[in-house]
Computed example of a mutant assay.
Amino acid sequence: MTRRHVTGDRGTTVTSPDPRRTEIEAAASRWAVRLGGAPLSDAERRSLSAWLAESRDHRAAFEHAEAVLSELSRIGRAAKASPRRVVIRRRTRLYRLAAAAAVLLALTTGLLWVRDPLVMLAADFQSATGEARLVRLTDGSEVELSPASAIAVHFTGAERGIELLAGEAVFTVAPLGDGEARPFVVEANGARARALGTQFAVERVATGARVVVLEHRVEVAAPGGAEGGRVVLAPGQSVRYDRDGGLKAVAAADIGEATAWRDGYLVFDRIPLGEVADKLGRYRHGRIVIADSALASRQVSGVFRTSELDTALDVITRELGARTVSVFPLVTVVY
């Protein structure tokens, strides 16, 4: 699951930006955002004046950042008023303008946190971006973590508990017997999957979780929903849980598709773009931000190699009639 730094349809190699210019533009963006908040203190005013006086590059970057912040505000107002008719002015400067807007968006919303620091602190085991990891637990069970995934282990005298904090994983459970009587339970976003057999997969998504059974059976319990809050899944079956709508109806699942990431592929079958972006973000550095909820709800289908996900994002956005702007390696905005 190594990552190639490519962009566009021609496979052009991405080069790293000039560190000094990147630092200046980031500082200018921070000052522009700060000026849009509470009034500056005396110390901040002196600091800004000194920074601007250091170089003409500082002042030019600051003026550009202020213009971009104003333009981003205009785009946001226009999107609310008429989402289909948003136009970015000065198209000859589209890339630089939109890229700077992406940085400002990330700075103002905290979206540069690709990995949740609270999850990282709570995790007993986690995998890095773009890298899968096999974990062997003390009871003999195994957990295959997909990239950028994390679990916390809560083994007690009564239960072998696992909390899936981020991402997805395949669990191969050591069976009961031979002195092991504790049930094996995985919790993810409010849903609890209790192993009645040996192997199943759990994926945590923003609004809930999905459980797919590979072998034997798994009991899934969650508040509310069409199934009365509890179902037992057989091999090749899946169920989704949504925090707002509860447990959904049991559905057939293609096991090969559900675990394709183990073989270096991602398979999407009518999956919302927002969820697709979250999954792509586990395999590539930098945050993927969807500009509005309507776009995030658009459905995506396709099969993509995990080694070519920069190209995959280009393909997806082109098929949806959307665009992307990026500030490598921080953020890509889809709008």
Rank of each mutant, 00 (worst) to 15 (best):
M1A: 11
R4A: 13
R4G: 04
T7Y: 13
R10P: 00
D18W: 06
P19E: 05
I24R: 11
A27N: 12
W31P: 04
V33P: 00
G37S: 12
S41T: 15
W51D: 02
L69T: 01
L69M: 01
G76H: 04
G76Q: 12
R77L: 14
K80C: 05
P83V: 12
R84C: 02
R91L: 13
R91S: 14
A98W: 02
A99V: 05
A101M: 13
A106S: 14
L111H: 12
L111T: 11
W113Q: 15
P117Q: 06
L118K: 11
A122F: 01
A122H: 11
F125T: 02
F125Y: 15
Q126T: 01
A128C: 01
A132C: 11
R133E: 00
S141Y: 09
L145H: 02
A148G: 00
A150G: 06
A150Y: 02
A152D: 10
H154A: 15
F155H: 07
E159T: 15
R160W: 07
G161M: 10
L165K: 05
L165V: 04
G167I: 00
A174G: 09
A174N: 07
E180H: 03
A181D: 15
R182C: 05
N189A: 15
N189Y: 10
N189D: 14
G190L: 12
T198D: 13
T198F: 03
Q199P: 00
F200P: 00
A201F: 01
E215H: 15
E219C: 08
V220R: 01
A222C: 09
P223V: 06
G225H: 07
A226V: 12
G228T: 10
R230Q: 13
R240Q: 15
R240N: 13
D244Y: 01
I255A: 13
G256W: 04
T259I: 10
G264D: 08
Y265F: 15
L266F: 07
F268L: 10
F268Y: 10
I271R: 15
P272S: 11
V276G: 05
G281N: 09
G281S: 12
I288F: 08
I290C: 09
S293W: 00
S297A: 15
G302M: 08
R305N: 05
T306R: 14
T306Y: 04
D310L: 07
D310G: 10
L313K: 04
I316N: 03
T317Y: 00
T317A: 09
A322W: 00
R323N: 11
R323A: 10
T324W: 00
S326Q: 12
S326K: 03
F328D: 04
P329V: 09
P329E: 11
Y335F: 04
